Amino acid sequence: MELSDLIFSFFCCCSLIFSGVQGSAHHYHDGRGHNHRGDYGFRPTKLFVFGDSYADTGNIRKTLANSWNIPYGITFPGKPAGRFSDGRVLTDYVAKSLGLKTPIPYAWRKIGAKKLRYGMNFAFGGSGVFDTLGALLPNMTTQIDFFENLVNESVYTKWDLQSSVVLVSLAGNDYAAFLQNGGTIQGLQGFIPRVVNQLAVNLKRISEFEARKIVVTALQPLGCLPRITQLTSFQQCNTTQNTAVQFHNLLLRQAVAKLNNETKRSNIFVLDLYDSFTTILDQKNDLKAGKLKFESPLKPCCLGTCAECSCGSLDDKGKKLYTVCSDPKSAFFWDSSHPTQAGWRAVYTTLKSGVEQFVQILQS
């Protein structure tokens, strides 16, 4: 099938399937177009996280990422702490919405043992459903292995799992690695189903640990990331890449619907990051009181000053090879791929009604 045929069939499917499974864009869904009441009296006490740099709060090794370099973390916690932003990231806001403290990164488990009661974050920046940088980064399967080892060691009990919420946020790096390693946009039509199928296998495995609720993110519009929009001076998203992302998200919703039907439970929900991002980035939308509007939404706050430079890069003498905007709160994107804290807060705001509804479902 040619890409043009794929896109045509994709949009035909959208008109039929989205009407049945997507529902309101700013809500959590079980993939079947309606929300269900949760377990009576359920109160989440822990958050477990699997994913990539959108969810990582300090797992990535310092030798592998600039997220441990200044100016990362300048807004929160005031210094670099491994988060790929100037401050808080998706994990922090999901934890907040659930009334929980941000769980400790897996890499800090021994030095922060007292914080194990909040859950644990297994997300590593740069990782994917499959391997993205060889053995340097644990893919999703390996992250779940880490989790299973802790369960087998009785670090977490069956009750801990039954009183927890799981956040899953990844897949963008799989497609970036595919294209960087010689893959083509046309080739994505065969690769996307492979990624979603493996993601579904992993979601089923997590569900078998008896975690009550799993939140998996729909993929953000990759064609709107600054590393892509820099080709148009940060003026225009790449619609071809975004169409591929929409196809991924369609298959993801179908997979979630199938899993929920197979288990006879509605314990997996899709969090629509795609719609949230595009709502904020589309300046035509009249957002509440204009508080979520950013002057140049596609332009990042922190930019490398050379072709091979990125935010946080230094030369051999320690000289900065990047520039930072005067006010990170004025920018949606922090660097070439990640939102600022203000950006994540805006995303959370657009999703707030859905988040609140999800919490009500948990507690009803």
Rank of each mutant, 00 (worst) to 15 (best):
I7A: 01
F11D: 00
F11Y: 01
I17Y: 13
F18G: 05
S19Y: 13
Q22L: 12
Q22I: 13
G23V: 10
A25E: 14
H26N: 14
Y40W: 08
F42D: 10
R43K: 11
K46C: 02
F50D: 03
F50W: 00
Y54T: 08
Y54G: 02
G58D: 01
R61A: 04
K62V: 14
I70C: 15
I74G: 03
F76I: 08
G78V: 02
P80C: 06
P105C: 11
I111G: 09
A113R: 12
A123N: 12
T132Q: 12
N139E: 07
M140I: 02
T141F: 06
F147A: 00
N149H: 15
N152T: 15
K158D: 13
K158V: 07
L167A: 04
V168I: 08
L170W: 01
G172A: 14
Y175H: 08
A177D: 07
Q180A: 13
G182S: 11
T184R: 09
T184D: 10
Q189Y: 13
I192C: 07
R194W: 11
V195K: 04
V195W: 13
N197R: 08
A200L: 04
R212N: 09
K213E: 08
P221N: 15
T229A: 02
T229S: 01
T232E: 01
T232F: 01
S233P: 05
Q235R: 04
T243A: 05
L252C: 00
R253W: 03
A255W: 03
R265P: 01
I268V: 08
F277P: 05
F277L: 08
D282E: 03
G290P: 05
K291R: 12
P297F: 01
P300T: 04
C302G: 09
S313T: 08
L314I: 09
D316L: 11
K317G: 08
T323G: 11
D327K: 05
G343W: 07
Y348N: 10
T349K: 14
L351C: 02
G354C: 04
V355A: 10
V355L: 14
